[in-house]
Design a protein around this nucleic acid. Structure first.
Lengths: 222, 222
DNA sequence: CCGATTTTGTGAACGGGTGCACAAACTCTT
DNA sequence: AAGAGTTTGTGCACCCGTTCACAAAATCGG
């Protein structure tokens, strides 16, 4: 029974799963479920039930023994912990294929994310509109961050431009950056950077596929 | 000194970093570097130098004490381990914004990945061309897997369709799946599934931003 | 040829995450 | 009201990954 709340002491692994629980709880709510067990939630989120219970115990005691967790209440509690009470305003840097796809992505809204700006370096693209958002010049970064109240940025530029963009984002006062450009970038302390690289994901899959084929019984044997 | 090679015994955490080393080594090679230390490579890949050495030691002894690692040779060795000697043929399922962006992505080639097919359910999109690849019907899945020698698939469909697509991919004989649809899906044993969810990444950033703002010294104090 | 210098490869300690197993707590039925 | 059944919250043991620290091995200068 954690009497005192534990505001900052949530393990990273738990934090990474909280969004999965939110997603799963929304699905359960849509199905009309109003109470669910850790087993049920674990199934919907694709994890182990013991982990669900341990994760949730880090936020406090929001379940009832012998019953389970109330779906909407638990969802609200997790949303509060991850700061999703009001939508985050994000800027997308780069209006190429990927940047455009992200700007038009309809899945952000329900997850508490709002695309508030799209910035580009190429003059050809500046002024065009993507899903109702006007593409502006990267030079307007600092101003846009202020006027649109932006607190996060997604980098969808070629890798060669990524480091400079990161530096400018940091200068503009942003502390949360999601980088899709396939290159390692450096950020100062206090700035939170996450990296997504599709090719890397495929290469990891490739390693395992390679291992499987090496042990493949259908391969020629002596 | 690992005399005997250790074919399947590479830790997951190491496997996940090998593609980063490949990327970094390519960058170093382009800069004309032909030998680099673990410190240098660690810097280029954005990790700790001790980890680089331990990771590489899992593949064998490819460095020279007092000197470092030969860039092109090491790159070849890692490429061999991850099975990147010939490109993987992948199918992209879903020709919406994200699927199209991935199909047109120019970063796959240098990383040993070839987009060999794009499949769709919407009749409106079937027959159109994206970056030289004709969009075909999802019904042709099994045939395309055979004719195009496909061994991996990327799911870029709405979440509601994801589970059925996964089942069909597995039926078609695929064992490597990268899922961009924001939902948990189940796969049988022996199938390798990786998940990428942009909204989840942003929510994780949101948690940390929320924590920062809670401890913000610029906030009102008593 | 030898000592100084550099850098790898690895043993060992540490920390965090996962999963089991069970007591505590709640509901329901009789 | 009491026992049977269910589910949470958590102590504990195990395992994996990271980092430190150092001996082994190579180069270089004199």
């Amino acid at each position: 029974m954690t009497i005192l709340r534990n505001p900052a002491g949530i393990p990273d692994a738990t934090v990474a799963r909280l969004p999965l629980y939110l997603r799963a709880l929304d699905e359960l709510a849509e199905q009309g479920t109003d109470v669910c067990s850790s087993e049920h939630l674990a199934n919907a989120a694709g994890v182990n039930s013991a982990i669900v219970r341990k994760d949730l115990s880090h936020l406090g005691s929001y379940g009832t023994r012998g019953v389970g967790y109330e779906v909407t209440y638990l969802s609200e509690q997790i949303a509060t912990v991850v700061g999703q009470t009001q939508p985050w305003h994000v800027a997308i840097i780069g209006a190429g294929h990927l940047g455009s796809a992200l700007a038009a992505y309809q899945g952000f809204g329900p997850r508490g994310v709002k695309v508030a700006a799209v910035l580009e370096a190429d003059p050809e693209l500046i002024g065009t509109t993507i899903d109702g958002v006007v593409v502006r010049s990267i030079e307007a970064l600092t101003e846009v961050v202020k006027t649109e109240d932006i607190s996060m940025a997604i980098i969808a530029t070629p890798p060669a431009a990524a480091q400079e963009i990161v530096d400018r984002l940091v200068d503009a006062g942003l502390h949360s950056i999601l980088n899709f450009a396939p290159t390692a970038v450096k950020v100062p302390d206090g700035v939170d950077l996450r990296q997504v690289d599709v090719a890397v994901e495929l290469q990891i899959l490739g390693y395992h596929a390679h291992q499987r084929s090496a042990a493949d019984p259908t391969a020629v044997s002596s």
